[in-house]
Amino acid sequence: MSIHTIQDLQEVTARRVSPDERLFSADQEEIRQGWTTDIYFVKTREILRRLELAATPVVAEVFAGRPGLLAGTAEVKNLLCEAGVAVWALPEGEWFAAKEVVLRIHGSYDRFGIYETALLGILASSSGWATAARHCKEAAGDRRVVCFGARHVHPAVAPVMERAAVAGGADGASCILGAKLAGQEPVGTVPHAVILITGDTVEVARAYKQFMPPGSPVIVLVDTFKDEAEEALRVAAALGGDLHSIRLDTPGERGGVTPALVREVRARLDQAGFGHVQILVSGGLTPERIALLAEAGADSFGVGSYISGAPAIDMTMDIKEVAGRPVAKRGRIPGITAAPRLQRIL
């Protein structure tokens, strides 16, 4: 069944939206129908139709403003799947250079022009998040990196962000929908809230082991009430071989998680016979901090704001051919750009 998209300015004027009756994010149907597009694409559609040029075949190319790692092509494919156009794209997870063509569309402009705003936004944001995740993974080496960034962005885009992080190289995501979209199960331990309410870290650790599904790695926060090394030893003594990891999330008010703290906790666990217990670190991590903490003995990392707050990588769409004739705006080279790495996706 074909999707109805906005046809003209009259339809835009007639639409009524009340901020009192809904969340402010667009749902899938609103995006597919064109309600998140810039108004000038609706004006363009109306003008071209009145001039009987809407069916003109064109070739459009999308290029990046700066280098990065591509993500978002799978979602763009889903957006354009019923538009009746042919699409080529750089595969997700590939590095691209500044000005390199990452996507190309062949078809009648009227079939895809309404989606320019959306597809550029998808590629720009997803690639920014994926690039940040790859930087973290490169700093971590063979250690795990899990995206914990959902709380830093609007819930409407949290799944997009965490899926992009996985596409960029993160080993997992805590956002349920984001992980599912990446073909994974969500990962994560428990927040400080359960420890604060229960009143004792060891009691929570025992409850986690008892009540969580079999096979769930037991990972316990150890920075809520006591010294991190002391709490780590208490939890390890209580759970023994059932304890998979302790998590260090020391707040900035106490200096955050430092390499010295990781070294101390690692040494004290080893000395007490708990060498199997791994150390997961979270809280304000950057690639630079990840490298230092990995060297100190951290085994895995939960990264939030560095990924979620990554700037989008500007994407631009240019018409490069109209009815078989090479064209370009001033400053750009007319005609289809050589881009041998593109693969057909539609």
Rank of each mutant, 00 (worst) to 15 (best):
T5Y: 04
T13M: 09
R16E: 10
V17Y: 05
P19F: 11
L23E: 08
S25K: 12
Q28Y: 01
E29L: 07
G34A: 06
I39S: 08
F41N: 10
T44S: 13
R45E: 02
R45M: 08
I47C: 01
I47T: 07
L48K: 01
L48T: 11
R49I: 01
E52D: 14
L53K: 06
T56E: 13
E61L: 06
E61Y: 04
V62H: 01
V62S: 02
G65T: 04
P67R: 12
P67Q: 10
G68L: 04
G68W: 07
L70S: 02
L70W: 01
T73R: 03
N78E: 13
C81Y: 04
E82A: 14
A83D: 14
A83G: 12
V85D: 10
A86Y: 01
V87T: 08
V87R: 08
G93M: 06
W95E: 12
W95S: 09
W95R: 13
L103W: 12
L103Q: 09
I105L: 05
G107K: 15
G107Q: 13
T117Y: 04
L119F: 14
G121S: 10
G121L: 01
G128N: 05
W129A: 15
A130C: 06
T131Q: 10
H135K: 15
A140N: 08
G141M: 05
R143L: 14
V146G: 01
G149K: 15
R151W: 11
H152N: 13
V153S: 02
A156F: 11
V157Q: 03
P159E: 11
E162C: 13
A164V: 04
V166D: 07
A167R: 11
A170L: 09
D171S: 15
C175N: 15
L177P: 00
L181K: 06
L181Q: 12
L181D: 05
G183Y: 13
G183Q: 14
E185D: 12
G188S: 09
H192P: 04
I195V: 15
I197M: 03
G199I: 03
V204N: 05
R206I: 11
Q210M: 13
M212E: 07
P217M: 08
V218E: 12
T224D: 13
F225H: 07
K226V: 00
E228N: 09
E230C: 03
E231V: 00
L233C: 07
V235E: 00
A237L: 07
L243D: 05
L243R: 06
I246S: 01
D249A: 03
P251R: 06
P251S: 10
G255W: 08
G255P: 06
T258P: 04
L261T: 00
L261A: 00
R263L: 00
V265W: 04
L269D: 08
G275A: 15
G275K: 08
V277P: 01
I279T: 12
G283L: 03
I290Y: 08
I290V: 14
A291F: 03
L292I: 01
V303P: 03
G304L: 09
S305V: 07
Y306V: 07
I307F: 07
A310G: 07
P311D: 10
A312N: 04
D314Q: 04
D314H: 00
M315G: 01
I319H: 12
I319P: 10
K320M: 14
E321M: 15
A323Q: 09
K329H: 08
K329M: 13
G331I: 02
G331F: 03
I333R: 14
I336Q: 09
T337F: 00
A339I: 02
P340Q: 06
L342Q: 06
Q343T: 13
I345L: 14
I345S: 10
L346V: 03
